[in-house]
């Protein structure tokens, strides 16, 4: 029981990070119907920016950790958002009117570019950060096993919930969110009604990248180890999460992220750690067999 509870906590923390990345996929898919393959690598770039900014702040004398973290968060969100914007502008916008596989190929190309750019500019070796946020609470205590909830896990879940709420308000209550939803339903009609479609799509990428940067920072703080390749696996998992929850649906992305995080954690805890990805991917295949458009996705109605 205690072991189970501990794994549940770990799984939720991991699932929150996947959920944050998955939102970037699901937003972009919802609005322009493409798999933004480079998004996982945007997450990786965000993580590197956060690492560099954090060490930079420490070295110029800002050692008060909460202040440093807030500054790092802002810097990482801003700079990663610029990356997201640029990628859309350079690699996807020229192909907007093209057939569907074209932006997928440029997205794979951008993913290769980002990975290798970071590898070349920052080196291929893993970067380790000493634990920044330490401590935690002991929830339960069995004979030889203590269930602990660390501060970083609390931070991850709280940040995720706060961002989700803010994001949901943004989508649901603001003019920007309205134009975003309009573009999602019918881009042509939205343009006719005066929505600036190009700007909305750019903003989608900006928001997705900013959330990925938050995920990158949380990942860095949680695991303390990053390299140029983390984006690939995390990206695939997050995309799996988005599909699992029903691509295009925001709560679905979060739900999918949680499910993937939990499956992975429980599988590693109770079975073998080597096959945790196999478990997550098999779960995806199983769910899609019974719910072909994901758990919370709207079934695609095809008019003839």
């Amino acid at each position: 029981m205690e072991y189970f509870l501990q794994q549940l906590i770990n799984g939720i923390a991991l699932g929150s990070i996947y959920g944050l990345i998955a939102i970037g996929y699901t937003l972009v898919y919802g609005i322009i119907g493409m798999i933004n393959f480079a998004h996982g690598d945007v997450f990786m770039v965000g993580s590197f920016i956060a690492l560099i900014a954090f060490i930079g702040l420490l070295s110029i004398g800002i050692t008060f950790i909460p202040l440093a973290l807030i500054l790092v968060l802002l810097v990482a969100m801003l700079l990663t958002a610029v990356w997201g914007w640029t990628i859309e502008r350079v690699a996807y916008r020229p192909l907007r009117a093209s057939f569907r596989l074209a932006p997928l190929i440029t997205a794979i190309g951008m993913s290769i570019v980002l990975q290798n750019f970071v590898q070349v500019s920052q080196g291929a070796r893993v970067k380790t950060l000493q634990p920044v946020i330490t401590g935690g609470y002991e929830l339960m205590h069995a004979e030889n096993f203590a269930v602990s909830l660390s501060n970083i896990q609390i931070l991850i879940v709280v940040t995720t919930i706060a961002l989700m709420t803010a994001f949901w308000l943004l989508i649901d209550r603001t003019p920007l969110g309205r134009s975003l939803r309009a573009c999602e339903q019918d881009r042509m009609m939205a343009a006719l009604c005066g929505v600036n479609v190009d700007r909305t799509i750019s903003l989608t990428f900006v928001m997705g990248a900013a959330l990925a940067a938050v995920a990158g920072l949380l990942y860095l703080l949680y695991y303390g180890v990053i390299d140029f390749f983390i984006g690939f696996i995390a990206g695939i998992k997050a995309f799996t999460a988005a599909v699992l929850g029903g691509i295009g649906s925001l709560p679905g992305a979060m739900l999918g992220g949680m499910i993937i995080g939990l499956i992975e954690t429980f599988w590693s805890a109770y079975f073998t750690i080597e096959y945790k990805d196999v478990a997550a991917f098999s779960m995806l295949a199983l769910v899609l067999i019974f719910f072909p458009s994901g758990l919370l996705g709207r079934p695609e109605v095809e008019k003839v």
Binding site: I35, I236, D277, V278, F281, L284, L288, I289, P292
Partner: peptide, 26 residues
């Protein structure tokens, strides 16, 4: 399993399948 899937759902399941094969081989 992918017969009922369309478009990008198919893409992600085939991707997952490729990864599963590689992990098993590993």
């Amino acid at each position: 399993p992918v017969l009922r899937l369309r478009g990008d759902y198919l893409a992600i399941v085939t991707l997952a399948f490729g990864e599963i094969v590689r992990i098993v081989l590993q």
